[in-house]
Nucleic acid binder design. Structure first.
Length: 221
DNA sequence: CTCCTGTGCC
DNA sequence: GGCACTGGAG
């Protein structure tokens, strides 16, 4: 399984090249983006982050102090704006109360400890937590998202009925705990899911993984 | 399972 | 007009 997962990674990397993730100025902006991009296209998130940037709200203290209605207006382009405004302030206020606003302090514990603390926060589920752990704190954790489930269930490597933690464990148990590897792997999965392994009408004919794909072998050509 | 919500592409 | 978008809570 290790060789298979590494082979897929190598093929994706050769085909798409390094993705240079996460597109952000710093760790706090990564976290804001991770919350805003929940079930939302990144192009919409960029607008919301631009709005926050423009009023200097990309810091825990400023974000926590904004009136709710003001923050809702700023993040509106990313959708679910009431939920997301609440989730952002919830995160910022927790960070201020428990770690004096310092991400370095939040990230000071072990992967397991910090992950547990993130998951306890309102609005941070396993995918958002792993995105923060990997792309803001550089912990070697694997992000499982809708693209990962789709691509690897089509490949026949995971079952789409499997739970998040189970699929995450598959990657973590078969790959070395290498944060740069996990960073690039997930970014490549997203690129492949967006451009080739689409939900409807995937481009199997042009796919670099079709020769090892269960979906392709079952498709009527 | 349903709700949450704006944006953009086929 | 329908659908997908780097999900999570109730």
């Amino acid at each position: 399984m290790r060789q298979k997962l590494l082979e897929i990674f190598e093929r994706l990397l050769r085909n798409y090249g390094p993705r240079h993730w996460w597109p952000a100025q710093g760790p706090f902006e990564v976290i804001v983006g991770a919350i805003l991009t929940q079930n939302t296209a990144w192009t919409n998130v960029e607008k919301a982050i631009g709005n926050l940037q423009a009023v200097g709200a990309l810091s825990p203290r400023v974000l926590a102090g904004l009136p709710a209605a003001e923050l809702e207006r700023l993040v509106q382009p990313s959708g679910y704006f009431r939920q997301k405004a609440r989730r952002l302030q919830s995160f910022a206020r927790n960070l201020l109360e428990r770690h004096d606003g310092s991400l370095e302090r939040l990230f000071a514990g072990s992967l397991t400890e910090v992950r547990g603390e993130l998951l306890a926060l309102h609005g941070i589920g396993p995918e958002t937590a792993d995105s923060i752990l990997l792309y803001a704190a550089h912990f070697p954790t694997f992000v499982i998202d809708a693209y990962t489930m789709r691509i690897f269930s089509r490949l026949g490597i995971v079952d789409d009925r499997q739970k998040y933690e189970e699929v995450r464990h598959l990657f973590l148990s078969h790959l070395p705990p290498d944060a740069p590897l996990f960073n690039e792997y997930h970014a490549l999965i997203v690129e492949h899911g967006k451009t080739c392994c689409r939900k409807r009408e995937p481009f199997c004919g042009a796919c670099i993984l079709s020769d090892i794909c269960l979906l392709y072998s079952r498709r009527p050509q």
